[in-house]
Design a binder for these strands. Sequence first.
DNA 1: AACAACATGTAACCGGTTACATGATTGA
DNA 2: TCAATCATGTAACCGGTTACATGTTGTT
Lengths: 181, 181
Amino acid sequence: MDLSPTARVILGMLRIEPLCGYEIKSLVDESTRFFWNAGYGSIYPELKRLATEGLIEGTPDPAGDRRRIVFRLTGAGQAALDQWLGSEPEPLEMRDEALLQTFFATGPEQASASLRTKAEGHARVAERLRELEAKAEEMASPYPLSTLRYGLDLHEYARRWCEREADRIDQGAHGTRAEKS
Amino acid sequence: MDLSPTARVILGMLRIEPLCGYEIKSLVDESTRFFWNAGYGSIYPELKRLATEGLIEGTPDPAGDRRRIVFRLTGAGQAALDQWLGSEPEPLEMRDEALLQTFFATGPEQASASLRTKAEGHARVAERLRELEAKAEEMASPYPLSTLRYGLDLHEYARRWCEREADRIDQGAHGTRAEKS
DNA sequence: AACAACATGTAACCGGTTACATGATTGA
DNA sequence: TCAATCATGTAACCGGTTACATGTTGTT
């Protein structure tokens, strides 16, 4: 009775409001995307599966000739969502390629460059998150805004950390071989 | 000529020193694991592939009757590694289930609880990273230590952030419905 | 007329996790 | 002798990404 990763975000979104697949994807893109992504290729098949299992229910709601299926939580779906919300979360996983490049850097120039590239990445994410703040403030629940501010603060912190470390390396800190030459 | 995710960490490790698959896995576990993981099920098949492609070369080096194959970078492997190190990294991806639970929390108790759970997770990682510091300090390159300190600082920051936010929620901050009742 | 946005879906591919299978060596 | 560690590998499974396919509606 464990929910798949995509099922978790779908059920959560549907508790806020009944939605079609397209709207779920849009909502994810402007809220959880930076710590929990989901694409159409996961969402639509999962919607079918969840409907088959009776956790959600889809009702056709076409706008003119454009077909559209709105899904809403069933009682079983609400129960499954509540159960998941109270369960122990999986440990945080991440893939940070820029950091791996720093790890394997062969000299101060490479290390510093990878850190600055990483800093720019964090800056871009932080900027995007700032643009989403207004939307988060409008939501009925205050917790999406909490998670957004978390992302904002964390990415800002990471950006500053990387820049400071790159500065230190550029100033010739560390007992590197490059210093000896 | 793009390197697979596991190939990136394998080639990087082999530049430090020729290693067998088992040793690569051990090294990953005590260094890059928290931002770039790799399991046996990825490492061994990838070692074969890389050898076939000529980026690494394996030579049997049994200890008694226990078979053991040590791999080292070829010239082509070094070139591929250097090329990757100078390439644009993929944007950081993460899956933070605790944060998703906060996002979907239905009340202050649930939100606060998920944040404290998340804080504990960060504390555990930070603790583990602290244990690895001595090893990182012994390495020839200073950059693995940089990435370790990055992880340490970031997880500590995240831990404090979550605890503070949980405190604020417990004190009845936010204009939540719970306050009205 | 054309393009962006709305809307749904499938299929191929890629690659990571887990479980399984096997066996040697070392230290308690 | 027993457990932990060293060491290599495969197969099944799971699930995410990308590309493809199709058609409507609203805007310029």
